[in-house]
Structure formats: C-alpha cells, structure tokens
Amino acid sequence: MPDFYDDDARLTRPRIVALALSAALVALLSLIILTAPGDLERLNLVARERLTESGVANPVTAVLLNFRGYDTLLEVAVLLLAVIGIWSMARYARVWIKVPDTPVLAAFVRLVLPLMVLVSGYLLWLGADAPGGAFQGGAVLGGMGILWIAAAVWLPDFQFQRFARVMLVLGLIAFVGASTLLLALEGSFMEYPAGEAKNWILVIESAAMISIGMTLMMLFVGGIPRLNEGTV
C-alpha cells in the first residue's frame, strides 16, 4: 500500500501552489472572455445565410452534418477508437449480468424497447428542423441498450459480438463511404450535390445514430456483457 491516502484533503505545499495556479487561471480566462472582441459573429452569420443550401432547417444539424461534416466524421471515428481501446484492455465486461428473479423487468423491456426505437427515430427526423438529431437519438438507443442488458433479454455470445461489431462501425462506414462517393461524384470531400443534401444527411445520420447508441451502451457496460445463468 502506498504511504498516502486519497481522501487526505490536507493542504500540502504542492496543493497550495496548484490552488493558486488554478485561481490565477480562472481569473485570466474570465478576463479574456469578458473582454473578448465583439466580433464573434462571422461564422454565425455565414451559417445562417447559407442555411437554405444545407438541406435542413435546423442550423445546429446543418453545422454538424454539412458545414462541418468532417468534424463529425472524425468524432464518429473517436467513438469507435474509444470502444476499441476498452476492448483491447478487456474484451468482456467485469460484471456478470444476472437474470432478475422477477419477470417484470424483462416484460417491461419487451414493451418499451420498440417504443424507444420509435422515439430515437423520431428525434433523428426532428433534427432536420428542431433540436434533435443523431446524438439525441443515439442517447435514447444507448439507454435502451442498457435496459436490454440489465433485463438479461439475451442473445448468444457469438451472435451478440457480431451484432455489436456491425453496429459499432456502421456510422463510420456510412460517413467514409458517403464522403468517398461524393469525392468521386462531385470532386470534393463532404460536399453534397445541390438539392439532395437532405437525403445524404439522413442516411449518414441514421447510421451514425445506431453507432452512437451502441457505443454509449458499450461504454456503460465496459465490454461484451456475459450472462450468469443463476438468478440474483
């Protein structure tokens, strides 16, 4: 055992230095933010001006999937990398899932699962003109996945792995595939053909939503879950 304890909150000298430096950083950053030059409007104005060309009416979705699409592409890659990182340390989750000794949870999950799929699809569709989109829908799908695992409504291990892998890479494949196709068709990376942007965005977002949901579930569970045959 190390000779110090974590919940030791004593203000040692290094901590006082760290505290002073953090406070100085807070003061400096506040000053910078409060006295920032007023011209923060350039991107805002460009984004609003060209919103009609983006294929969607919600400016946040337009920025995410059109104007800064490459950013979101890289982010989907980061999600996949995080899961690969976790799996490379431990393929299987540390906690065994047990079948609950009451059928209520499983019955509830069977009822609510299709509804959550519906809600996530609705949020995705809504993202075109109101707050919503792949990330919100993906969060609902992730929650659904966690419920599904907790209720031990089960797939055999090899099937689950195959299913999980396909879902995890779907978003990145759709994104890279679409941008490569666009590069071949239009001659430029991530530039949708005029008037057809919405269809491209919808395909990419649907795939990204599924991957985001699966990624969030995997992050929560911390690896491929295993079923303990006994009951709680």
């Binding site: 805002n44 984004a47 337009a62 920025v63 999600l79 995080a82 969030l216």
Partner: peptide, 22 residues
Amino acid sequence: PDPVPHALVITGIVVAVCATGL
C-alpha cells in the same frame, strides 16, 4: 443562438463520455 458552438458542444459531450469510459 449561434449554432456553431452548439454543434461543438453536442459532439464534445459525446467525446467526453467516451474519454470517461476509456
């Protein structure tokens, strides 16, 4: 509101969750 920081925040939240999990 300006949509550009909002888009950055929404991707940032998901990346933060990933970093936490890892």
